[in-house]
Design a protein around this nucleic acid. Structure first.
Lengths: 115, 115
DNA sequence: CTAAATTGATTCGGTAGCGAAACGGCTCAC
DNA sequence: GTGAGCCGTTTCGCTACCGAATCAATTTAG
C-alpha cells in the first residue's frame, strides 16, 4: 500500500465526504472526545486505564468515565477490572467496536480513493 | 500532488491523530453535524440555503438553523439575506472560517505525511 | 494497624443539542 | 388584493455532555 500525500484541499474534501456520509447515515452520533477515545483504545498499545487515557487526551477523569459509560453502553468498548490492583480499570476492545471502526476506516479509505 | 491511497488501518490512524490533537487543543468543540455543515459551505459550490443544506445533510431545518447560530456566533460562517427573495438566507464564508479550515486541513495533511 | 495516597465513580448546577410542532414574514397565482 | 404555499425561525419538553468538587474502594508507607 502506497504513500499518503494530501494537500489541504484534498484533506478537507476527504473529511467532508466522510463526515457528511456519517451524518446522513445517522449512526451513534459520537462526540469528538468519544471518537478520539475509541480510536486510541483500538490503535494504541494496551493496557488502557482511565487515568492514562485522561492524560493522553488532556481531559479530566470524569470526562473519560462518562465517555466510557456511553461507549460501553453502545457495546463498542468494555471495562475490565484489574485483578492484581483492583483500583484500576482496563478498557478493552469488543467485536462490535472492531466492526464499527472497520466500517469507518473503510468509508474513509473509499472516500480517499475517489479523490 | 500525489495519489491518495489508504488502507483501513492507516485511515484510522489518520483520524486518531487528528482527533486526539483536536481534543487536546480544546478548540471550539464542534458537533459532527456542525463540521459537516461548515465543510459543505466551504467546499461545495454556492449558493447555500438552509433548505438546501438540510437536504444535503439529510437533517431537519431547525437543526440547520441551530448549527448556523452556533457557527456564526463563532464567526466561522455568516448569514446573508437574499434581497431578491427575502425569504431566503444565504450562508457564506468568513475570513475566520477560512483560517479555521486551513488550519484543520493543514493538521490532517501533516498527520497524513507522518504515516 | 493505621494514615496517606491513588484510582475510578458520582453528584451538582449549568449549557447545548435534539425532533416535532407551530409561527411570522414573504412571494406569487388568481 | 387575497389566499395558498414556501422559507427560516422559534418554542417545547427532553436528553446528553461539561468542569469542579467530593466520594468509596483499594493499596501502600510508616
Amino acid at each position: 500500500m502506497m504513500a499518503v500525500e494530501l494537500d489541504i484541499r484534498k484533506a478537507l474534501e476527504l473529511w467532508r465526504t466522510t463526515f457528511v456520509e456519517g451524518v446522513r447515515m445517522a449512526g451513534p452520533d459520537l462526540t469528538a472526545r468519544q471518537l478520539a477515545l475509541l480510536l486510541t483504545v483500538y490503535l494504541a498499545p494496551p493496557p488502557h486505564t482511565v487515568r492514562g487515557l485522561a492524560a493522553t487526551l488532556h481531559v479530566s477523569k470524569p470526562a473519560i468515565t462518562r465517555a466510557l459509560d456511553r461507549l460501553s453502553q453502545l457495546g463498542l468498548l468494555r471495562r475490565q477490572r484489574d485483578e492484581t490492583d483492583r483500583r484500576n480499570v482496563f478498557v478493552e476492545r469488543t467485536a462490535k467496536g472492531t466492526a464499527y471502526l472497520n466500517d469507518l476506516g473503510g468509508r474513509i479509505a473509499a472516500a480517499a480513493r475517489v479523490l
